[in-house]
Structures are given as structure tokens and as C-alpha cells.
Amino acid sequence: MLLKDQVALVTGGSRGIGKAIVQALAREGAKVAFVYRGSQQAAEELEKEITAAGGTTKAWQADVSDPEAAKRVVGGVMADWGRVDILVNNAGVIRDGLFIRMDPENWKTVLNTNLDGTFYFCRAVAEQMALRQRSGRIINVSSVAADHVNAGQTNYAASKGAVNAFTRALAVELGSRSVTVNAVAPGFIETDMSEAVRNKAGDFIAKKLVPLRRLGKPEDIAGVVVFLAGPAGAYVTGQVITVDGGLSLGAVTA
């Protein structure tokens, strides 16, 4: 087990990529707190599953876009387990729509969740990691959409591009305290979020645009998160690691 007795906190852990990250960290021996917003039943099932397998976990209901939520959750994790070794900012949303008609509410929701949420949680753990522990791993889940954009995603691309820039800037500040900060940028992953696009073009994307000839699975992302959180990732910081089966290489298979 790579992460025995470490304490991890994962946002958006009830479904999709976040759920796979929670499972993978728990399998490596970490105690895992995770945040969900609405999916209480899914969260409880995940708690049961991990506990049954001998792991330690706790679900926290919170909206990451609420400035107070991160303080409350991180305070709770500290009270439970006394430290935070790994933070994974995974909670994210899309509100796709062409820019000409974009509702400012949809701009705000995406930026507040994907970018501000990441800021709040980093802010809530930074002093603990940098000054008290002098160690920590922060992993932000970004997207290839930060650099390889689809129509209808101005809000989403802006949020993920900002997460990448923020990741690099924070890595510079916290480096001297042995806190690493990295991002993982998934391509097309099979989750609820990508369902609409997959239904429309999943086969085409997998067969024509992805050199590895398949869509990604949440586990494909979780594996890289475990790498960044574990001993093998100790000397990696400020990087955005693309995990997309080669999609962003831009090749079209003939």
C-alpha cells in the first residue's frame, strides 16, 4: 500500500472520476474524506463499500462553490484525523451553450465551482500543509478542454485554463515547504458528465480521434492521481498531466 495512514480529501467523490479516485486512494491505505453535493445515496453506498473492504472513509455534504464550505469540511477532517496529506480538487460541472446566448448564471456556476471551489479548498489546507506539516500533495482535476476547445464551452475552458495557471503559480509558492501542486487533465472519460457527448459522438471519438481507440475510464484518471499522491510523484510539481489516450495529439485516424 502506497499511502498507508495518510489522510486524503477528495471533492466530488460521489460519482464518476472522483468516486474512482476515492476508491483508489482508499485501496492504497489512505483515510479518505470526500465531498458530494446532492448524491447522498451514492455517497452512502461508497462509504459502505470502502468500509466493508476494510478502509476508512467519511462523506461530507457541501457545495464547493460556497466560500465557507471548505473551511467547515477541512476543519472536520482535521478534527477527525488530525492532518491532510492529499487534496484532490475534482468537483466540477459543465453548463455548455454557445457564447452568443450564454446566460451569465451559467458562466458563474462553472467558474464558481471549477475555479473558486479549487481556490477555497486549497486555501483551507495550505497553511496546514505548508507551515504545520511541511508536506502535502495537491492535485487539481482540470481538462484537455483548457487547451483543446469545443464549441459551447467558453465558460468551461476558461475555468480549466485558470485552474492550470493557478496550479503552476501555487506550485511555485508552496515548493519550499515540500507541498507539490499538480493538475491532471482528462480527455473523454465515461461518466455522467460526458454522457450527452458520448451518446452523440462517442464511437466516432473513440475510433477516429483517440489513438488508444477507446474512451477513458475513471480508473485511468485515478491511477495518475495515485502516482502524484504517492512516493513516485515526490519530485513532480507545477505540471498539468494529460490523460486522454492521445486525443490531444490531434491526429485523425485514416
Binding site: 497553511e127 507551515l131 509558492e173 508552496l174 519550499s176 515547504r177
Partner: peptide, 12 residues
């Protein structure tokens, strides 16, 4: 000392 060191000093 760098800027983050000043925070660290106060904290300690």
C-alpha cells in the same frame, strides 16, 4: 528569508 518564510516565522 523569502516572503513565505516571514509567514512561517510568525507561525512558529
Amino acid at each position: 528569508a523569502e516572503s513565505i518564510d516571514f509567514l512561517d516565522i510568525v507561525f512558529r
